[in-house]
Design a protein around this nucleic acid. Structure first.
Lengths: 352, 352
DNA sequence: TTGAAAGCGATACCAT
DNA sequence: ATGGTATCGCTTTCAA
């Protein structure tokens, strides 16, 4: 039992195939009478226009490719869901590609192109400059999310990681911490490098010398392990800036359950992202919140704009992070008196 | 600058367009000499076969639709990532649809069909019998993940939620708990209903009368709120079975930080899923682990099998859950002596 | 092994 | 407003 085509519908309704096509084209001119006859025939046959054939003839697919590294990283699912919902709202579909950390986005790219996606969103922390340029040369609009590439002609929406790193440095120094450490995320991720750079730059500018950087990864386990190494040192740090919240949770659990440290009396911990779990009473993590929702919307807006005008100049938008004061870090007085921060994940939907 | 087509390549290589097509068809017969000439021309023009055109003429797209309700639910991202990776391995792409809880899968279905997906995976806890039947009648293979529909002719891969609920009932009664409660997930989700049914059925069979069911949702916040209501009752429960781990984390935090209860001395809590956070020392949650990886593979296998033979009889596979003993529940001695359960998320990759 | 030509199921331009 | 027809880029018979 094959699926009905516009020809079948045309035959049944006693009209031409072109007319059937018009009925299913929003702004085409068809008489009310013909339209209803065609729709009746279509309903009877269970006809649905074939999007593949339409794509071929219209030369656009309404499909947006999304290349995402590690969907399981915290807050990636949230971003993905929002992307999809927004795209669906504007009549676009999402072809999703997962790019495992070991393989580059490049492998998937060929495939993505074969499917003639109208545009591409790349959410993968590790992407090379050459890759970015290659994307730009594809002739289809590409927007990088949470990643920017200096010097490359690509559209990008990103948090101002460097500035956020500097902010944390100031905070921890102002509060009188002496032995500072940074726990890394995935080594070559730009988010990780930028946060560390801002943090260390500012520490150096203010003359701090006792700073260590501990290798990690964007996982809870890596945070736990890194904290164990760090807290075993003779010159144990009294403050740790962690590349992301999920990693910071691991750091907190290690500090509390392996080293019996009190937070924040013995150790201050600051994370990055403000994932829902950061607000849970078990963690109560002070962190840097990024305006995810605004960034997501900006990504979609920018992509849609470039869909209309592919030749427009590439644009990079940096969004500032904001401190969310909770209980995991001793901070200078002016910060501590800030209004209490929302608890739980309600803000994922609202406050951002 | 338009993209090169097979005609462009043919012209440059001095062969027919058919020949170019053959070069890009795995088992076609082309002389080595011609092939290399064509490949050279293709490379020069940056030619990539147009998958849309191929789909139209081959009458299959190699695209699998995935309809997922709430991508942000715990362990959905994990499932999604695995699906995509497996599909990519067998040369299939994933067109992803998000089905918000308020809207039914049905809305998306029409769209999915228009894109001529070869098959469909539905991971949405709420789906009606009619819907399931409608899917079956589409003529394209459909596999339900983590959901089955009694009486409908559809393929489904699911945990044996009823049996798991009965297991938990036995456990808690054997340990001598007296006042038992169930904290629900999303009200009309089959996973939720089945877990509750198994739990309550078995409790009744063994003569337990003091059982309450507290409305909830598959979120941390809902668990926190439900626990607050439950623990405020004069006949406060001494054991709670929670519809899923993420909800259970909320229950634990409420019990500890709002009611100052000791876990498991004052209250036993058992969850469901064994998400990574369940193993974190802050929660140390006793739970029911489902063999996710095996279920994912079964889903893909079943789908691929039905792709070959769409007419084969629908199949429903139930996978048993297994108890993971950690510290959040007082359990009868035989259970407590079990070997210590793996810590952290390593098992997500291995043990399943 | 290779080339010519007929689809695949729509869209869109051109007549009427 | 409607019908006829070329077209999109590929696959796949059928001949050569």
């Amino acid at each position: 039992m094959k699926r009905a085509t516009s020809i079948d519908v045309a035959r049944l309704a006693g009209v031409s195939q072109s007319t059937v096509s018009r009925v299913f084209t929003p702004e085409a001119s068809v008489s009310a009478e013909t339209r209803s006859r065609v729709l009746a025939a279509a309903a009877e046959l269970g006809y649905q226009p074939n999007a593949i054939a339409r794509s071929l003839s219209k030369q656009n697919t309404n499909i947006i490719g999304i290349a995402m590294g590690r969907i399981t990283s915290p807050f990636h699912p949230y971003v993905l869901e929002k992307f999809i919902q927004h795209l669906q709202e504007v009549g676009r579909q999402a072809l999703l590609f997962s790019t495992p950390p070991d393989r580059e986005v490049e492998d998937a790219l060929e495939l993505i192109m074969q499917y003639q996606v109208d545009g591409l969103i790349i959410t993968s922390a590790t992407i090379s400059t050459e890759m970015a340029d290659a994307c730009a040369n594809l002739g289809i609009p590409v927007v990088l999310f949470n990643r920017y590439v200096l010097g490359a002609r690509v559209n990008a929406i990103c948090t101002d990681n460097v500035e956020a790193g500097r902010l944390v440095a100031n905070l921890l120094l102002d509060a009188g911490h002496k032995r500072l450490a940074y726990v890394q995320g995935t080594a070559n991720a730009s988010t990780n490098l930028d946060r560390q750079k801002g943090f260390f730059d500012r520490l150096r500018e203010r003359g701090a010398t006792e700073v260590v950087s501990e290798p990690g990864d964007y996982t809870y386990e890596a945070g736990f392990a890194a904290a164990c190494r760090l807290l075993n040192r003779p010159d144990r740090p009294d403050a740790i800036f962690v590349a992301s919240d999920i990693v910071a949770l691991g750091v907190l659990d290690a500090a509390r359950y392996r080293f019996d440290l009190r937070i924040p009396e013995d150790l201050s911990v600051i994370g990055f992202d403000d994932i829902p779990a950061a607000a849970w009473p078990s963690y109560n993590l002070t962190t840097i919140r990024t305006p995810v929702n605004r960034m997501i919307e900006a990504t979609i807006d920018l992509l849609l704009a470039r869909l209309d005008e592919p030749a427009a100049n590439p644009q990079t938008l940096l969004f500032p992070g904001a401190l969310v004061t909770r209980g995991s870090a001793r901070l200078p007085a002016p910060y501590q008196v800030h209004p209490p921060q929302p608890t739980f994940a309600a803000f994922w939907e609202e406050a951002l």
